[in-house]
Design a protein around this nucleic acid. Structure first.
Length: 676
DNA sequence: CTCACCACTTAGAAGACAACCG
DNA sequence: CGGTTGTCTTCTAAGTGGTGAG
């Protein structure tokens, strides 16, 4: 019954979010009415938000006032355009797509511009009302190797049966990869490979070290080389075929809208590549057949047909979930899904909601911080542990750290699963006090290393937690993510550990943008500032990448360019000097003009040089840092949109096409004064 | 509480593609 | 125009967090 209560709470929360009565009414009214009512509600929500006595209440109010003034000044007449009442209520300063809005518009056009964020959200936990799709695209069947490609074991040629040969090719394709040298990988592979062999093969092939895959490997290299060498025509043909498949299988119909599917292809069979020190690396990931597939769609939709002669495992009509297709994978036994693209309504709404939760945290974060500092003094060990863990999650943006099954995955940890061996305490270090040194492997086995001074009371608690423990013992032995999240839920509706990461990432971006952007900077300068702000977040969240293989070389190339530019600048300056001298001597129009052109040239080259240097700085600073993850998952896009608007930078400079599609909601709704 | 299960978000690497350069 | 380089897209692994049974 506990869970049920919780569920009710959640429902209640959701209902609170928007006024229920109004929504019910709106559901049955027409589009215009719905929209305007939504706006009205939003406005009310805004007011509520601003009047609930948070610390920055005053500033927020000022801001709102300012916005209203601006709106009045610049865009008072929107409502006349097509009679949509909604424009009366919350005029937009800038509305991108206007033409074609009058009267009836062609369906296709409407489809392209569908603004789901201006529509109602379901409140009953259902994710859709209608869903129709074509099912998944299966991996191509195995094509046996041509006869001339041979395989040897112990020096003797063996013609492998197709199943054994297929698995062998998986290994052969990876021969150049470091994976294949690892003991665990080889052991796992060999074990699974033998399962595919005929008894005869099994008796002949008993030692992987005696297997020679070279001809296979060479064959695949030649094949990929041949693909590269294909004529334009052939390449075009393949491209068209891919496009056809995309058009047929890459979209679904969900609640009257055509939506892009994220991954409509079933993962092909192959060898499992775990990250880090994974105990299952090299195992055979088996081929998925229609009989493994569960299809989810509307009862009243045209159901996807399984390939001829096969059947689905199950046909389901569950509109409480968002997936279209699922199957169980054989390595960990987990379920894999086919879901919609990030640009879809279903993903976008959730994403938007995530940032709204983080913004609610912003309003009460100081209160929570006071509380956890207070809890450091608690009589109860579990509360102290909870409070210190939360401090780490807040201050260092650590992940929650769920427990993991031993032997099933690589040994990685998050905050709650930190072990004694992952930290070192230094009461004094150089000129700093109470330094904690973190060294552990996090998600994807990415190393987290950080030496950081912490508050005295937190430090003393850590010393206490370490008492009488072995290195492999849990640092927070009275804590797990479920306890922590239950606590957080009580502190704020919808609060979980990961919200802190979102909040701290977004607030950092906003602060850094404010601090780094200088009005005098030119465009590349501003972009550098943006990237630096983005970088600050990536560092906070520990988003690392392997330095690109060509990094050194590309840096060198850039340096050469800079050197050349410098030389060019020197020559140009000399020429300017000469022309000035000429002008002084002759004082004629022609020489005066020459001076001017030269001056312009020098200026242009100076700027080019600066830009190159900025590019170099940017790239150097970015060597081991991945910006994409934070941009895509942690930074409220409205901050970036507002920044672009404020500095009159086109959004394309900050978001590529995919990102613009994912963040269409933010691009459409955020104004230059948006505050996270 | 633990455990198993499920659904969904977040993650870096690899592969595909496009732009640029000589 | 071909090869190289940098960017975008795809892929799928690895997390988080919710639920419900026992």
């Amino acid at each position: 019954h506990k869970h049920k209560d919780k569920h009710k709470d959640k429902e209640h929360r959701h209902k609170d979010h928007k006024k229920d009565k109004e929504r019910e009414k709106a559901k049955h009214s027409n589009r215009e009415g719905r929209d305007s009512e939504k706006k009205l509600r939003d406005k009310e929500k805004e007011k509520q938000k601003h009047s609930n006595g948070s610390s920055d209440k005053h500033r927020e109010k000022q801001k709102e006032k300012r916005r209203d003034e601006k709106v009045c000044l610049h865009k008072p007449k929107r409502e006349n355009e097509n009679g949509y009442a909604r424009y009366d209520i919350k005029p937009k300063k800038k509305t991108k797509v206007k033409k074609g809005m009058e009267g009836k518009k062609p369906k296709k056009e409407e489809e392209e511009k569908w603004k789901w964020w201006e529509e109602e959200r379901a409140t009953d936990g259902s994710k859709w009302r209608f869903l129709e799709h074509k099912g998944p695209v299966f991996a191509l069947p195995y094509e046996p190797l041509p006869l001339h490609v041979r395989f040897f074991c112990d020096g003797k040629q063996i013609k492998l049966s197709p199943p054994a040969e297929e698995v062998a090719t998986f290994f052969a394709k990876m021969l150049d990869h470091e994976y294949t040298t690892k003991d665990i990988f080889r052991k796992n592979f060999f074990k699974d490979w033998r399962k595919e062999m005929t008894p005869e093969e099994k008796s002949k092939i008993t030692d992987l070290n005696k297997c020679n895959f070279n001809e296979m490997s060479e064959h695949f290299k030649a094949q990929s080389e041949a693909r590269k060498q294909m004529s334009k025509d052939e390449k075009l043909k393949i491209k068209e075929e891919n496009e056809r498949i995309l058009q047929e299988y890459g979209f679904c119909l969900m609640d009257n809208h055509k939506e892009r599917i994220g991954n409509f292809r079933i993962e092909p069979p192959g060898l499992f590549r775990g990250r880090g020190d994974h105990p299952k690396m090299g195992m055979l990931k088996r081929r998925i057949r229609p009989e493994d597939i569960i299809i989810n769609c509307s009862k009243d939709s045209k159901h996807p047909k399984p390939p001829a002669g096969t059947r689905w495992k199950e046909l389901r009509h569950d509109n409480k979930v968002t997936w279209l297709v699922s199957w169980t994978e054989n390595i960990q036994g987990s379920i894999k899904y086919i879901m919609l693209n990030p640009s879809s309504r279903i993903k976008g709404e959730k994403d938007w909601q995530k940032y709204e939760t983080a913004r609610r945290l912003k309003k009460c974060v100081e209160r929570l911080r006071t509380q956890y500092r207070d809890d450091w003094k608690s009589k109860e060990m579990r509360i102290r542990q909870r409070a210190v863990a939360l401090y780490f999650i807040d201050k260092l943006a650590l992940r929650a750290g769920n427990e993991k099954e031993e032997g099933e995955t690589a040994d990685t940890v998050g905050c709650c699963s930190l072990r004694v061996e992952h930290i070192n305490l230094y009461p004094k270090m150089d000129d700093q006090e109470y330094v904690v040194e973190f060294d552990f492997l996090g998600k994807d086995s990415i190393r987290y290393y950080n030496k950081i001074p912490v508050e005295k009371r937190a430090f003393k608690n850590l010393q206490l937690f370490l008492e009488n423990k072995q290195p492999e013992d849990d640092l927070f032995d009275r804590l797990n993510t479920s306890i922590l999240n239950k606590h957080l839920q009580e502190l704020m509706d919808g609060l979980t550990a990961k919200v802190f990461r979102t909040y701290n990432a977004s607030i950092t971006l906003q602060q850094q943008l404010k601090a780094l952007t200088s009005p005098d900077d030119n465009l590349p300068g501003k972009i550098l500032s943006y990237n630096r702000a983005n970088r600050a977040v990536a560092v906070l969240c520990n988003h690392q990448r392997a330095p690109p293989k060509t990094f050194e070389k590309s840096m060198q190339n850039l340096q050469t360019k800079i050197d050349d530019k410098q030389k060019q600048l020197a020559t140009s300056r000399k020429q300017l000097k000469t022309s000035k001298a000429d002008h002084k001597a002759s004082h004629d129009e022609k020489s005066k003009k020459a001076v001017e052109t030269k001056r312009k040239t020098v200026q242009r080259i100076e700027e080019q040089l600066m830009n190159l240097q900025m590019q170099a700085t940017d790239r150097e600073e970015n060597k081991q840092i991945a910006l994409g993850t934070s941009k895509l998952n942690y930074l409220d896009p409205r901050i970036s949109v507002a920044w672009c608007k404020k500095w009159e930078i086109s959004i394309e400079k900050v978001y590529n096409k995919t990102q613009r599609e994912k963040f269409a909601w933010a691009i459409d709704m955020a104004e230059d004064d948006f505050e996270f």
